[in-house]
Computed example of a mutant assay.
Amino acid sequence: MVETAAILFTALLAFMEIRHFATGGRMTAAPSLLEFALQACITLAMAIGLERLRLRSRSIVHNVGAVVLTAIAGLISVFGLLILENPLLWHTDVGGAVFNLLLLGYAMPAVLMLLLSYAVVGERGKVYANTIAGGALVFALAYVTLEIRRFYHGPILSTGPTTGAEQYTYSIGWLAFGVVLLGVGILVNSERARLASAAVIALTILKAFVIDMSTLTGVYRALSFMCLGVVLVAIGWLYQRILFRRQVAPPPAAPQPGA
């Protein structure tokens, strides 16, 4: 009972402090991207801490608390960051070119979700861990996309037309992200990273045929498909040379005559 109260009031204190900071003391003000970003990061960090703690304590309170905090972080991330305060949908000033609300609201949650997925792997169900890892992939891709948008549109992402150069940059950015994931998967022998890479590259291919084909013209369309083709050929080569290579066992030595 005491442990439950400690977790509850720690979470409430964190949320109240975040609200006070994000609203400048106006506790009844509407929520903002900054508030949801801080809430998601703090909740994920607390969930990681409880997951680590429960491995030593084997306490059902720590076990349930970690799951509840993870669920709360998921709700904040999906409904708060991706819908209610998504800067693509609403008039929100995200700040500077690099150090901005996108870094706090999308990159940091992606990192924390990834850490949480590794904290629960082997300790909870595979679907549970993979769902959190999938969330990390979604937020990492969202960060890449929103940063590209920030480069072309400035701190207000919801205004202005999407040019051909911008569409082309999205395709290149997604391809680069997929290649980085594949490289990480090969270096650390991570099947999860390789599957994430395949998902991102498949999404890029879909974008190329559904969006780029209809919106890009001239050189940007040609470059988009050329870069996609080169990357796919390179990935095929990597899979053949590295991932599908099998060590051929040496044939057994022939018995010596008279042995």
Rank of each mutant, 00 (worst) to 15 (best):
M1L: 09
M1Q: 10
E3I: 03
A5K: 14
A11D: 02
L13I: 05
F15V: 07
M16G: 15
I18P: 04
R19K: 02
H20Q: 12
F21E: 15
F21R: 15
A22I: 03
T23N: 13
T23D: 10
T23A: 14
G24Q: 07
R26N: 15
R26D: 15
S32K: 00
L33H: 05
F36Q: 01
A37C: 01
A37D: 05
A37Q: 01
L38Q: 07
A40Y: 02
I42A: 12
T43E: 01
T43Y: 04
T43W: 05
G49P: 03
R52S: 15
L53I: 11
R56E: 13
S57P: 00
R58V: 00
S59Q: 06
V61T: 11
V61I: 10
H62P: 06
N63F: 08
G65V: 07
G65K: 03
V68K: 01
L69F: 05
T70A: 04
T70E: 05
S77W: 01
V78H: 00
V78L: 01
L82Y: 02
L82I: 02
L82W: 00
H91E: 11
T92P: 00
D93W: 06
V98C: 11
F99V: 12
N100P: 11
N100A: 10
L102E: 06
L103E: 11
M108H: 05
A110I: 08
A110V: 10
L112C: 06
M113Y: 06
M113C: 14
M113T: 07
L114N: 15
S117A: 15
S117I: 08
Y118G: 12
V121G: 03
K126Y: 09
V127T: 14
Y128S: 08
A129H: 01
N130M: 10
N130H: 11
T131W: 01
T131E: 07
G135I: 06
A136Q: 06
F139K: 01
F139P: 00
L141C: 14
L141F: 06
Y143F: 14
T145V: 10
T145M: 10
L146K: 15
E147G: 09
E147P: 04
R149D: 14
R149Y: 10
R150L: 03
T159Y: 05
P161Q: 09
P161H: 08
T162L: 12
G164Q: 12
Q167P: 00
Q167V: 07
Q167N: 12
W174Y: 07
L175Q: 12
A176Y: 06
F177A: 14
L181A: 14
G183A: 13
V184A: 15
I186H: 10
I186P: 05
L187Y: 12
E191R: 15
R192S: 15
A193Q: 09
L195Y: 12
A196Y: 12
A196M: 13
S197T: 09
S197L: 08
S197E: 11
V200A: 09
I201F: 01
L203P: 05
L203K: 11
T204C: 05
I205F: 10
L206T: 12
K207H: 14
A208K: 00
V210D: 13
V210H: 07
D212H: 07
M213K: 04
S214G: 03
T215M: 07
T215G: 07
V219Y: 06
R221Q: 06
A222V: 13
F225E: 02
V230W: 14
L232W: 01
I235P: 00
G236R: 00
W237T: 10
L238M: 13
Q240M: 08
L243A: 10
L243H: 06
R245G: 09
P250N: 02
A259F: 01
